[in-house]
Design a binder for these strands. Sequence first.
DNA 1: CAAATGATAGGC
DNA 2: CCTATCATTTGT
Length: 186
Amino acid sequence: MKKLPKFFYQQNTRKVAQALLGHFLCRKINGQIYRGIITETEAYCGPQDRASHASRGITKRTEVMFGPAGRVYVYLIYGMYYCFNIVTEREGYPSAVLIRSCQPIKTYKKIIPVGPGKLCQAFRIDKKLSGVSLASNKIWVAKSRLKIKPKDISKAKRVGVDYAGVYRNKEWRYFYNESNLVSRSK
DNA sequence: CAAATGATAGGC
DNA sequence: CCTATCATTTGT
């Protein structure tokens, strides 16, 4: 299975967030490859987006968001869960896609990685992975032949960003209609 | 609805 | 240094 190329991630963040639906999140742990079909994403778009960590400028934590596209941004949230993001667009323009849910295949018969925190547990994603390239052999996204049409994608407000001023109402959360595996229905 | 739980960012 | 906050999840 072929990795998505770097230029895929250099596109507009909301476009990437939608285009990622249906592709395979792949993670290699101890020689074993784990996969899930991406079913739910959120876009965090540029320095103006007050919902984004990058809106308060570059810090040690968020510097990877300011870097080149196709790298991993992981952070600890609420002291107990990690969130997994993919950096998008051009260097210097901080933006990323949060991967919220996956549809389990093969290895994940029991673990249902719904919700960003659970997904990171299932894929053993932690802060050590932040900054790693998706061109690496640790974690990547592989192209699926599944064709998802615009009508198959639902849009909704992002979760947990009520503090974000006018940006809290942006419908920059996307999920695949045919999957029941999303963290919230609406 | 509230608790769990700790890094982070911003204030002093 | 100090502490309010947080792109979550689970249980009451």
